[in-house]
């Protein structure tokens, strides 16, 4: 429902909840006026609507800090009113006592308690597993400008297949993300599942996450990486293990049919950068487009995935995502662009 609305407006998707749990935002429209913060508590990209233990730790810490902050704020405002209404002055000595206990000792003790609590919570929010002992499923994610290269690794650490801007994980199974970047620093963040982790050129950072609830979530780049940083998102599908295995085996064998669309795709040089499994298209510079029709968006979370938006992106990628690396193809005949767009939308 939301996607249709977006398709009609044709504007880039910038807010998280538009993808995924449709209707969540709409239900909260009334709440938005009553109490704005509440309306943003649920959704596909909310750290306050956790679907994994790490994110639950972050949410617990947030609520603890929030409640503590409210109590202290009430106390300070109460003192302010008291000071404003008080007729008779206190002695210098009692004022000094208030400053000492309320201004120095109390904050020191509260901050020590909060620091201890936060540090104590850290192993929950970022659990660590030894390399060799784990045997966990591994997914390598590389931050590109401005999209995500996703490689599913096999037992021997070699990539089984590659995809882009979409991560699929089985529910209830801890997955290791190997995070890389070839040029600038990005940050990999799935708020619903856990904290963020930087992707630093020359390093391979590891983040382990587990989804406890099936669903479609939204991940974002959380470190400014260039003009289209805000348009660098990805979809996370937490799937039931059986459905996940079915998807894995289907994905290994997927191929792009539609002879005419594919022929145009190849003739106009798209395959120099893009790959489609099962075809001659094997480019590795740009995002892999295998099963593109199943993706949640066009241009790493920029537009809803419709044939019109794909055509628009092919003609002027820079108009959708500023300074994107893909050149524009507005010189191609309209019929060809539309045919290619329909072909990509039909890829399963």
């Amino acid at each position: 429902m939301n996607d249709d609305r977006l398709a009609a407006s044709g504007r880039p998707i910038r807010s998280g909840p538009s993808l995924g749990r449709h209707g969540v935002c709409r239900r909260h429209h009334l709440l938005l006026f009553v109490f704005p913060p509440l309306a943003s508590c649920s959704g596909a990209q909310s750290a306050l609507d956790p679907a994994g233990p790490e994110a639950a730790g972050v949410a617990t810490l947030f609520y603890t800090m929030l409640i503590g902050g409210i109590v202290i704020w009430c106390g300070v405002v109460g003192l302010l009113f008291y000071a404003a209404r008080k007729r008779r002055a206190h002695s210098t000595k009692s004022a000094g006592q208030l400053v000492l206990w309320g201004g120095a000792v109390f904050p020191t003790v509260v901050l020590a308690a909060l620091l201890t609590y936060a540090v104590w919570l850290m192993p929950v929010m970022r659990p660590w597993f030894q390399d060799d002992a784990s045997g966990m499923r591994r997914i390598e994610v590389t931050g590109e400008q401005f999209w995500w290269r996703v490689r599913y690794l096999g037992e021997d650490s070699g990539p089984v297949f590659e995809t882009a801007n979409e991560v699929r994980i089985p529910v209830g199974e801890r997955v290791v993300f190997l995070l890389k970047s070839p040029d600038v620093i990005h940050s990999f963040w799935i708020p619903v599942l856990g904290g963020k982790m930087d992707m630093i050129p020359g390093r391979e950072n590891r983040l382990t996450l587990v989804a406890e609830k099936p669903g479609t979530y939204r991940g974002v780049c959380a470190e400014f990486c260039g003009p289209s940083h805000a348009l660098m998102a990805f979809t996370v599908h937490a799937m039931e293990p059986r459905a996940y295995e079915a998807w894995l085996s289907a994905r290994k064998n997927s191929s792009g049919a539609d002879a005419e669309g594919l022929a145009l795709f190849l003739r106009h040089g798209c395959a120099a950068c893009h790959a489609i499994s099962g075809t001659e298209a094997r480019g590795t510079i740009g995002p892999d487009l295998t099963a593109f029709g199943e993706r949640g968006s066009v241009g790493a979370g920029s537009l809803a995935n419709t044939a019109e938006h794909i055509a628009r992106f092919i003609r002027y990628p820079d108009g959708v995502k500023p300074e994107v690396r893909m050149p524009h193809f507005s010189m191609l005949p309209d019929a060809d662009v539309e045919r290619i767009a329909a072909y990509l939308k039909g890829l399963r």
Binding site: L111, V119, P123
Partner: peptide, 15 residues
């Protein structure tokens, strides 16, 4: 106070 704060993580860092 600053030295105490800097030392608190020592208690919790596991490895």
């Amino acid at each position: 106070v600053a030295v105490v704060y800097a030392a608190i993580p020592l208690i919790f860092i596991a490895e």
